[in-house]
Simulated assay, not measured.
Amino acid sequence: MKGLLLIVVCIFLGEILSAQSSVRLNIVLNHVQNLTINPTQREVILTYNNLQNYKEGVEVTQKAHITVFSTGAYEVKVKLANEGYINLASKSNGVILPNIKVRANPEQSAADLLLYTGNLNTRGETIISSDKPAFDTVFDVIYQGPGNEEFVKYAEQNKTVTFTNDVLYSIETR
């Protein structure tokens, strides 16, 4: 009986000496999206040097051009900042040129991506779409100038002519 009483007293004293308190831990996960352009590739140049370029078009691939991070489904869109291009020689702006095409390819294969070829315009077109998150997924981007001699009428005799416009990329929730 004394042993039982001693056990009960020990349990009671143990309860008194060990008090408990609690804290609620909340973890808040916000949706995050980020698109980064490779800082060493802030300028893309499509150059028409010869008859073959004017007939077949030209293409430039920018390796590791954009990096995408998204905690959920997303789309990457591309568009022109201005409807018309600026002729750097004459400083005239608003020159409407034939469509330049843009497409992206992931550096690592990814089965859950939908890839499209977009025409550069001011409305914006989707070039990448995914139902899954992306964690620093890197894409090469291909810029393609048209052939079929579409640019011949913009060339000037005995001069190099450069037209410029800004290309804007955006990442949006899908």
Rank of each mutant, 00 (worst) to 15 (best):
H65K: 14
A73E: 02
T47P: 00
S70I: 01
V68I: 14
Q52H: 09
Q62D: 11
E43P: 00
H65F: 13
Y54S: 08
E43R: 08
V58H: 06
T61R: 15
A64N: 15
T61Q: 15
I45N: 09
T47Y: 00
E56R: 05
A73M: 01
H65I: 02
A73W: 00
E56N: 11
V44T: 11
E59G: 07
V44H: 13
E56A: 07
V60D: 11
K55R: 08
S70W: 03
N50H: 04
N49S: 11
N50W: 04
Q52C: 03
V44K: 10
A64F: 03
F69W: 03
T61I: 14
Q62L: 15
G57Y: 00
V60W: 10
I66G: 02
V60K: 15
L46D: 03
G57F: 00
A73T: 01
E59Y: 04
T61L: 07
Y48A: 09
V68F: 10
K63L: 08
E43M: 11
Q62M: 14
E59S: 15
Y54C: 04
G72F: 04
Q52L: 10
F69I: 06
I45P: 01
G72P: 03
F69K: 15
Q62N: 07
T47E: 12
Q52P: 02
K55W: 00
N50F: 02
L46A: 08
L51K: 09
V60P: 05
A64D: 15
V58G: 13
A64Q: 03
Y48M: 13
I45M: 14
V68M: 02
Y54T: 05
L51W: 01
K55S: 04
N50D: 12
Y54Q: 05
T67E: 14
V68A: 11
I66F: 12
E43N: 08
S70K: 03
Y54H: 11
A64I: 00
V58Y: 11
Y48F: 14
K63R: 14
V58K: 09
E43A: 10
A73Q: 00
V60N: 12
V60I: 08
K55Q: 13
H65S: 02
G72C: 13
Q52R: 06
S70D: 01
N49K: 09
N53S: 13
V68W: 14
E43C: 04
G72H: 14
Y48C: 08
H65C: 07
T61G: 00
V58L: 12
I45Y: 08
S70Y: 01
Y54G: 06
V58R: 12
N53F: 00
T67N: 13
L46Q: 06
E43H: 04
S70N: 01
N50M: 02
H65N: 09
